[in-house]
Amino acid sequence: MRANDKVGIVIVSHSPDVARGTADMVRQMVGEDVPLGYCGGNPDGGLGTDVAKILKAIDEAWSEKGVAILVDLGGAETNSEMAVEMLDPERQGKVVICNAPIVEGAVMAATEAWGGASLEDVRRTAEELSPQ
């Protein structure tokens, strides 16, 4: 069991390959210390997202400091919001979905999380990339 002193990062893509590739980049660039979960694909394994898989990824990346989710396209966001609402109430408040590009956002958020930043700071760092 890893120490829960860093915000966890979850990557949710329509494509299992994009999700895994993004997670690889985070692992290689930022390291193993940040709790990380990822998922991609619909329940049949095709392109899409899957609330059950998102819930599992949140669980894998769980940290008491919170979890920041990075998503790619519309359905990934909607399904992630759905997943967050299905969490235990005490967990819900500790999960945010970042409005940021998935790959860059994941690396930036993980770098920020690595330094022990709060969930809000991790989210802000990822979202610095998005036009306001």
Binding site: N42, G48, A52
Partner: peptide
């Protein structure tokens, strides 16, 4: 529907 649809329509029709 939420768990099985796999696109944005899952959460929407599920809701």
């Amino acid at each position: 529907l939420v768990m099985k649809v796999g696109g944005a329509s899952g959460p929407l029709y599920g809701t």
